[in-house]
Simulated assay, not measured.
Amino acid sequence: MKSPIKVVVTGAAGRIANSILPRICHGDGFGFDQPIDLVLLDIAPALKVLNGVIMELQDCSFPLLRGIEASADPMVAFKDADFALMLASCPYQPGMMRLDFLTRNKAIFKEQGIAINAVAKKTIKVLVVGNPANTNCLVLAAHAPSIPRKNFCALTRLDHNRAISQLCFQAKCTPADISGSICIFGNHSSTMVTFTEDGTIKGKPVADVVGKEFLVSQFEPRIQERGYAIISEKGSPSVFSAASAAIDCIHDWMVGTDRVVSMAVASSGKYGIPEGVFYSFPCVCKGGEWEIVDLKVDPTRNPELNTKLQKSYEELVSEAKMAGIY
């Protein structure tokens, strides 16, 4: 067994947390040999609910859960933290202006970034799930300048998982039949770019199996609009699929994977995306570190694809300006 790590979960009284906390404590995220000291952070009115959550987690008798506490104070919660899972954000409401949406979230992530900068370990890793995830991650990192930007990531693994799933449905196969680099570029929004040209299904190019027409007219729009489609059907956003994607991202980041996965990380000039935003790239992970990979097929050499990559980048720059970062 390793020494325990301190893991902070924000929005811990919410629905996604309800799905993700048992899996974290079970070892699905950080590994089955990694003990955890868990801190649940939420607003003061939610503390009574968090006490009930603590009681339930205690009743599960998870061997890896060494300690657990709740707090409404970020300065207390993030003290000496090793990992932060940022679930809390201001949800988008019908009729809300985009500027108002970004401004409200800026306030949340500015406060938490300041706290992380002040009291967390300088080696802390941070995964942002709350939307708009890419820009919330940018705001958080901007207010925690003593933490390396490579230690921040926004969740686009949900979009990645959706892409794999939709290919499986179309090809009537399982995820194990899909190889190579299926990935998501850009923002977690309707401008995200799906990339399948480096992938195969049962050894054959993806386009040969599912058809180019499906990829263009159905596949990418379906992934881009999947979140809205789920809200339309169930009346609320994705919950356990988002929780599962977050666990996948944590596991691959912290435990490692040779497989190409999608992570929204700090841009560095790769694929023609200038530094300054958190942009989804194809990555591999080892030893708690990620690395953007060079795909066999370079999407920037395809003018149509490159235009899409730039459009998603421009949207992120626009969001950053509205959030007051640029």
Rank of each mutant, 00 (worst) to 15 (best):
M1G: 11
H188P: 07
V8R: 01
P145F: 03
L309F: 07
T194N: 01
E233Y: 10
L102N: 02
R149M: 11
L102Y: 06
V261G: 01
K202N: 15
G113V: 02
A229F: 05
K121N: 07
D159R: 14
L305Y: 13
A207Q: 15
S61D: 14
V209C: 06
F101T: 00
P175S: 05
I201M: 01
S268H: 02
G14L: 03
E111F: 06
E197P: 02
K2N: 14
V284T: 14
K122I: 05
L167E: 13
I16M: 09
K270G: 03
I114Y: 06
G227K: 04
E56L: 12
I250P: 01
W253C: 01
V293F: 05
R98E: 15
R104V: 07
T135K: 08
E291T: 13
K234V: 12
T156F: 11
N136F: 11
I43F: 09
C168P: 08
G203E: 00
D33Q: 15
I250R: 00
I292T: 07
R15Q: 13
I164V: 15
F152H: 00
F32P: 09
I116S: 00
F78N: 10
S312Y: 01
P237H: 02
E314W: 07
Y313G: 04
D159T: 11
D208G: 01
R259T: 12
V8A: 00
A229M: 11
A77Q: 11
S181F: 07
F219P: 09
I124S: 01
M1W: 10
K296Q: 14
H160P: 04
L64D: 02
H251I: 00
T156S: 12
V49S: 14
V277C: 10
Q224G: 03
Q218W: 13
V39W: 05
G199A: 15
N117E: 00
D100P: 02
G276P: 05
A70C: 12
G27D: 13
K311C: 08
D294S: 07
L99V: 08
E111M: 09
A44C: 07
L155W: 09
G113N: 05
I20M: 14
T123S: 14
E213C: 09
V293Y: 11
L215G: 05
G186D: 11
L38P: 05
D208E: 15
A163K: 06
L57R: 00
N105L: 01
G180S: 01
K121C: 06
F152V: 00
E291C: 14
C90W: 09
S268Q: 10
A142F: 06
G14D: 05
S318N: 12
K121E: 03
C249W: 02
K172E: 15
P45F: 13
V206I: 15
V297G: 05
P274H: 06
T135Q: 12
N105A: 06
K296I: 02
Q170A: 07
S312A: 11
I325K: 09
I247R: 08
D208Q: 10
E291I: 09
I20E: 08
A176L: 10
L127W: 08
S241V: 04
I273E: 05
C25F: 07
G211Y: 09
I16T: 10
A264Y: 02
L21T: 00
K172L: 12
L127R: 09
Y279A: 00
T300L: 06
R162S: 06
S268F: 07
I108Q: 14
P175A: 10
E275D: 07
T123A: 12
N306R: 03
